[in-house]
Design a binder for these strands. Structure first.
Lengths: 243, 243
DNA sequence: GAGTGGTCTAGACCACTCA
DNA sequence: GAGTGGTCTAGACCACTCA
């Protein structure tokens, strides 16, 4: 195993990328807004436009920025439908996701257990908010999920705030708490439905469910959400492209 | 829905990319071998090195080519371990894949049903080869899978050829039949084990299994393999990064 | 030291958007 | 028509590999 320390030599465009990321983290440029033009940025940083382009291109490939020819470069936003769907990989076997509806089942404050604390890089016992909800795709309830986030990052998060933002958690994190989700790691397993999930999803105990366990990250690969989703895949599937 | 026709304007580097892909398809540059240097290619195509670089970069991002600074640019190969593992997304919950072993269960000629024919873009009734095998990761048998490929593309494929290449199907497709897999689409579901899969994986009927249904593509997004894998995810998981 | 890919620049021009 | 990102060029130099 190699150490993950940064190599000594870092090209100029990587340094520019770090500077851009810092601006994004600081909230100077907010989701949905345009960042300065390439020519402007090149002047600010005293580098050529080509060097800025390389930095911006990498951030665009990581879905942190969105380029639009003739208009400008924008900070990616979960308010945008397209970005949302990148994180929802479940769809009906026969077609796309037309409507998405969430029913809140629980929203309460808990203490982080050792495992959650380790994954969220906080101390054991720190307060978390735990949300449980059921999701319906095109009117059919197929997902039961639980999300846990550090309470500190989401002050005032309660059922009322959730109500206002309906189903889109990442859009809410972004607009109400300035926490921008930029990446996630998922692990999938097949499990048997327990009593709780069977009841909520209208299945029999023991029915096979697709379990998705996710760690979601904000800028700088800082973990900010743990999620466990259970999906009835009788008429739905998880799609993935490999190349 | 927009039509998927190619837009009228295609930049030069895209045209170069098409030319490079044609050379790869023709077998002029084989997996594992280097392609000509950027300067050489630029001269051949009468464009600047920068334009060649852009075309090569896209193919490298698609894992069709592999760049190695100071050495050259190589055609990606499934003989390379790293490329193999890109297509095997299952790993043990506690660690990596150290050994992989395949037991062949069946290898026979069948006729394509309507569904398979549609997905492989051939005529119904055309001959297919159907392989069934069990995979063991680090000595534990966890996957039972079936692969179907057009017999025409794999002349002489039989148990003996399979034996020689052990578990790595894509490596065999590539080296024995010059069929290079470059991408795949997967759909995942949770299902209950039937009698056959339960017997092979040493489980009880009804146990939850992760089902992966895959269409694999060669150059030009031509579909060349259908695969259905059933995985016991009691101590293993399917990993996916989202960004 | 020769050859490879990787970075950086400066400048020209193109495609696209919007007022 | 002004401003944006997108393409393309030519050239300089750097990091890396290998004989």
């Amino acid at each position: 195993m190699k150490s993950s320390s940064t190599p000594a030599y870092q090209p100029l465009y990587r340094q520019i990328k770090v500077l851009l990321t810092e601006r994004l983290e600081s909230g100077e440029w907010k989701p949905g807004e345009p960042i300065p033009s390439e020519i402007d940025l090149a002047q600010r940083f005293s580098v050529s436009q080509g060097t800025v382009r390389k930095a911006v291109n990498e951030l665009a490939h990581e879905n942190v920025l969105v380029r639009r020819q003739g208009r400008g470069t924008f900070v990616a936003s979960h308010a945008n439908e397209h970005t949302q769907l990148g994180f929802l990989r479940i769809s009906p076997d026969d077609g796309g996701v037309d409507t998405l509806q969430a029913d809140l089942i629980e929203c309460r404050r808990i203490k982080a257990d050792a495992s959650a604390a380790r994954q969220l890089e906080i101390e054991t016992g720190q307060p978390l908010m735990r949300l449980r909800r059921a999701l319906a795709i095109n009117g059919r309830r197929v997902i039961y999920e639980e999300a846990r986030v550090p309470a500190e990052l989401f002050p005032g998060l309660d059922a009322f705030v959730l109500e206002q933002h309906r189903c889109m958690l990442y859009s809410m994190y972004e607009s109400a708490f300035s926490v921008k989700i930029v990446a996630a790691e998922e692990r999938l397993k097949a499990v048997a439905a327990d009593e709780e999930s069977a009841t909520i999803l209208g299945l029999t105990v023991g029915a096979p469910l697709l379990m998705m366990v996710r760690v979601a990250y904000t800028y700088g690969r800082k973990p900010v959400e743990l999620r466990r989703s259970l999906c009835n895949t009788a008429a739905h599937h998880y799609a993935n492209d490999i190349s």
